[in-house]
């Protein structure tokens, strides 16, 4: 039992750190709804992965199957993120319309492919879906294997490393796109990087909070931190601390009440957000 919670904690820690750091640019660039669209696009990726599994094309070991499924979902979410960015950039349609279109299209594709994959899997005797619908919707970090711990840590390193490498142009671009472009910052590349990181983080967050609540991890820590400080580095550190605190408290809440872990973590983060907002509005907390 203890090992089960330990592996869950170790798998979730890199996720909340990744999402915490990324939540600051997401909030500053007002990409929360984009994150929602990208996370729901994961349904399409789940459907493709289920179909691949039904045809027996997934790797045999659980670790490799989880990795392969994650790669497929990341590819799907990344394509959706870039599609939303491209459509809104060209002003072909308003960004919220683009998100709405990608969101429902991906969910529909996912639902249809999962149904098809069930039929194929029955015929061919392969496992099909790697995850249950409930775990896709709300996450299932309890019982995460050591393979998932490694994948989470690797995703965390990739996202944080990329953010650190591009931090200066990315911050300049996030602050003022038009001016940054005038100074030579490649705005298109910055947007692509941020969107792909968002897609990777969303897929990582799905394990903890599921498709429905993954965006919460990419919005709540940053939104709360930005209420507490007006300094970038402090905001990033605070968002990570809040994410970790929310995870630990959420895990305890989940164990004590037998509620699902993902929603418990998101509930704690939501309560923190409203508590800080209330304290700020009453003048109890000042900006640091």
């Amino acid at each position: 039992m203890r090992e089960m919670y330990l592996s869950a904690l170790l798998a979730a820690l890199p996720v909340v750190v990744t999402c915490g750091v990324l939540s600051v640019p997401v909030v500053v660039k007002r990409l929360g709804f984009v994150g929602q669209g990208v996370s729901h696009a994961a349904f399409g990726g789940v459907g493709v992965a289920a179909l691949v599994g039904a045809f027996g094309l997934m790797p045999a070991t659980e670790w490799n199957a989880a990795l392969a499924q994650m790669c497929i979902i990341v590819a799907f979410c990344g394509a959706a993120a870039l599609g939303i960015a491209a459509v809104s950039d060209r002003r072909a349609m308003p960004v919220d319309t683009a998100i709405g279109v990608f969101l429902v299209a991906s969910m529909a594709v996912g639902a249809v492919l999962v149904q098809v994959s069930r039929g194929v899997a029955e015929q061919r005797g392969h496992p099909g879906m790697v995850q249950s619908w409930e775990s896709i919707l709300f996450g299932s970090v309890i019982g995460a294997g050591w393979g998932e711990v490694v994948i989470s840590a690797a995703v965390c390193c990739i996202v944080l490393g990329t953010l650190w490498w591009w931090r200066r142009p990315l911050t300049f671009w996030a602050l003022d796109e038009e001016s940054a472009r005038a100074f030579g910052v490649p705005g298109g590349r910055m947007k692509t990087i941020l969107m792909l990181l968002l897609a990777v983080a969303v897929v990582a967050a799905m394990k903890l909070a599921g498709v429905i609540l993954a965006t919460a991890l990419l919005v709540l820590p940053g939104a709360t931190a930005l209420k507490l400080t007006v300094r970038l580095r402090r905001a990033v550190v605070l968002a990570c601390v809040l994410g970790i605190g929310g995870l630990l408290a959420g895990l305890v809440l989940s164990i004590e009440t037998d509620w699902q872990t993902g929603p418990s973590v998101v509930l704690v983060l939501t309560v923190l957000f409203f508590a800080v907002t209330l304290a700020k509005s009453r003048g109890v907390l000042g900006a640091a």
Partner: peptide, 24 residues
């Protein structure tokens, strides 16, 4: 055009323009 909610000071905003090409 600027994102006014960004947690960046005036000095940092000026420095970003001068240092965005600097090796990480």
């Amino acid at each position: 055009e600027a994102e006014l909610g960004a947690p960046v000071s005036a000095r940092e905003a000026v420095l970003l323009a001068a240092t965005w090409r600097l090796a990480p």
